[in-house]
């Protein structure tokens, strides 16, 4: 039932939303920028490799916040430094806002259902792990992992990427105190279970 709801939620978001460009950024400029993003993040943000996160259907506020973090070097996990510090360095706020709106408006990838540990992952996602001080993921990321504002969509993300981020939060390689607190006592198998529930690979 939970899976059915999750799929239904994903399908309800399936149609790309139209969005209006903010002033000061032309359609041509945005298209030129997103063709560069496409080299790693795939057509319309649906990346092929799990090294690069899917951006299609991601929350606009989250994308914008991360691009600003990259630009200002306030996020310094290895991939952020290697790829995104450079790519975001010359983006202004208006362009960032439009890039974020463009990807948020793309059809999200639905999560894959039925992973080996999906049932365990679903339980962690919905109820947390009280023994490990892990709160329910759904409390912030939404019942269906769709995210909200600066809290990212997780549903349908690459499994490798989700796993890498959870491990990076746990070790503080990616500096985020809230997510570090939520993940510091997570075991590898619990991470695997959450990924199995949310990811699409």
């Amino acid at each position: 039932m939970r899976h059915a709801l999750l799929i239904a939620a994903a399908l309800s978001l399936a149609a790309p939303h139209a969005f209006a460009l903010d002033s000061g950024v032309s359609k041509q400029t945005l298209e030129k920028v997103t063709t560069v993003c496409q080299n790693c993040h795939g057509a319309k943000g649906d990346s092929v490799s799990g090294t690069f996160p899917r951006l299609n259907g991601q929350q606009a506020a989250y994308i914008a916040a991360q691009l600003k973090n990259f630009r200002e070097h306030s996020r310094s996990d290895p991939h952020a430094m290697a790829y995104m510090w450079g790519m975001a360095s010359q983006l202004d706020d208006a362009l960032i806002a439009n890039i974020a709106k463009y990807y948020a408006a793309q059809k999200p990838t639905p999560p894959q259902t039925g992973g080996a540990l999906a049932a365990q992952g679903k339980a962690i996602f919905a109820d947390g792990i009280p023994a490990h001080t892990v709160p329910p993921c759904a409390a912030c990321h939404g019942d269906h992992g769709e995210g909200a504002a600066e809290v990212p969509r997780l549903a349908g993300q690459h499994g490798d990427y989700l796993k890498q981020q959870l491990e990076a939060f746990r070790s503080l390689l990616r500096e985020n105190q809230v997510m570090h607190a939520n993940t510091k006592d997570m075991t590898d198998s619990e991470i695997e279970a959450i990924v199995s529930y949310l990811a699409n690979d």
Binding site: M81, A82, Y83, W85, G86, M87, S89
Partner: peptide, 8 residues
């Protein structure tokens, strides 16, 4: 020029 590390 790109600000990207070699690994990109």
């Amino acid at each position: 020029q790109t600000g990207l590390a070699c690994e990109a």
